[in-house]
Nucleic acid binder design. Sequence first.
DNA 1: AGCGGAATTTGGATCGTTCCAAGTCGAAAA
DNA 2: TTTTCGACTTGGAACGATCCAAATTCCGCT
Lengths: 354, 354
Amino acid sequence: MSMATDSTPHANRRITLADIAAGCDVSRATVSLVLRDSPLVNKLTRARVEQELRRQGYVYNRAAANLRRRTSSSIALVLNDLANPFFAEFAAGVDEALGGAGYVTLLGSTGESVAREQAVLGSLLEHDPAGIILSPAEGSVAARVLATVGMRTPLLLFNRELAGEAPPDAPWDRLMLDNQRGARLATEHLISLGQQRIAFFGGHQSSSSCQQRHAGYVEAMQAAGLPIEPHWRIECAPNRVDAAAQCGALFFDTPAPTAAVCYNDAVALGLMLGLYQRGVRPGRDFAVTGFDDIAEAALSAPPLTTLAATPRARGRQAAELLLLRLRDPQAKPQRTVAPVQLVVRASSCPPPAA
Amino acid sequence: MSMATDSTPHANRRITLADIAAGCDVSRATVSLVLRDSPLVNKLTRARVEQELRRQGYVYNRAAANLRRRTSSSIALVLNDLANPFFAEFAAGVDEALGGAGYVTLLGSTGESVAREQAVLGSLLEHDPAGIILSPAEGSVAARVLATVGMRTPLLLFNRELAGEAPPDAPWDRLMLDNQRGARLATEHLISLGQQRIAFFGGHQSSSSCQQRHAGYVEAMQAAGLPIEPHWRIECAPNRVDAAAQCGALFFDTPAPTAAVCYNDAVALGLMLGLYQRGVRPGRDFAVTGFDDIAEAALSAPPLTTLAATPRARGRQAAELLLLRLRDPQAKPQRTVAPVQLVVRASSCPPPAA
DNA sequence: AGCGGAATTTGGATCGTTCCAAGTCGAAAA
DNA sequence: TTTTCGACTTGGAACGATCCAAATTCCGCT
């Protein structure tokens, strides 16, 4: 009874352990041991199996393995705005570190919508990630997040706090920027240049990061004994367009400021645009600082003094922190504050000689 | 015999179908039918099961389901440079479209390294993605990619061609930008402003997109009967820093150009920086065009004339194309060329009056 | 009461891997 | 020769879902 053994298996069927086992006449268990470099298998057997693996073009099925081992090898990364270069760099950093540790990144972007955030989290959870890194959408609420994420999956919060009370028993770690100190550094820098009438420009009071930055500004002003006028605090959406539009508000009232600490770089760039339009030259007639040090900051005219948050390094750090948590699920929740660094460029200047 | 039924299951065990089934006294099969909205189950039973699902906080295990059904619900997205806003936007578009179709995005970024690309592809494949979207690293070779990806998993190539012959039987679709036409449009635009000595600046000869853009430039120059000097072609890495550094090379030799068609926006922005540093004002003394229309292009000083590639829409399109392929694995490979649109801004100007 | 058929429900096999307890085998020890 | 031991190897039961064929229940009708 002859039999044409089809040694080239049908092109569109997944090759499994059983195929390899059959192909070199050992058991599935042995092949599995080979795959995992177990010292148990005999050298010769190992060689035979390895050759067969190559011959058939075997691809490991991690999902099946994870199912059996009750483990996971993925981490979910949920971002409020992937299109923002700051978060894109962050994502690159996360992926870099996770990849190095053998994890795969499940991506989800929410476009700053709380509803999508819910949906995305739910969908990613079905893939059983070992952990989650979340930069929440504006207005995302702790209780809702807890309800969908549950308590089985460690969560690392990046960049923003959630609204409402953090559930006391949820082991959520956080990685935040040192907003207050950053804004204080910027303000102190302007003061050291001789500035006295300094405004705080942009952002919304409701945002935790804006509150913190404003607090840093106030701290520096008070430490220097400088007065703060109420009309030196201008709110606007954290983007260029709105910032440019609100520029005029700085000069409605006297005494007008001669410098502004801006909520972030986008706002600062918008403000500079607005200043140009009213004939005020930023970096000469009016000093401006930003926050983030996005790539454009170095290339604007004039280049922007700002605070570097090194998003790629933050991404790596976020990944590290989460991996740490996975190693020790019982450790108590950590709150990490990443330092920011003042980068002095030409947009900050002394006040015009009176 | 009393028995404390622990109705709140141990916090750290995954809830499975069996738990739900036991909890409301039906079989696993029935619960499964409920989960999948089968019309077979009785209304009352369904209600009972659904309540139990909520009560126990059940989370679907898609990996297990995929294993049994021999399906996959993820797509791998492998990018050569996530930190580039162009690709970040692209990724956002991909994720948006995939999420809408019920797929999850497995992210991998290669940092423009062929070795990492291999590693990342290998690792992602173990997670059995339904398909792959790949924007290859510079120098990535078709044969190597085929060897690791195999023929089971559909691949969509974005943005760049692979080096070497595409394997004839691999059903790889492509989505490319209309590089040649784009560069031609930019060049024609400069010519229509009266420019005659136009350089082609940036990128590497080895990259397919760079070749195509250069070809478009040559095409326009020749059509206008304008000469091209060899020293008007300056190579540099496609980033700002290197572009700024190479700026001087434009003026080593005579006749010096009075305009440059740049490989992309990053290069164009870097070039403008370099020009400023040598006292040449882009948009007045020297015309510059870019490619991509990244967000910064509209906001640089002067705003950059460039070609809009609408990366977010490209991302959605890439996802659509791949989904189409999944629906019909046999269809013959498609090559799609996405149009680009000339956006005229202030960086392009007539040559200075001689 | 008994029957046929629709409506529901269900046990068990299965997806591709890992774990585990138990097996084989050859050589050294008794 | 038998026993023992270390070095390998292996069958079968998991993991958590789905599929399928068969079983059960429920009804209306003779």
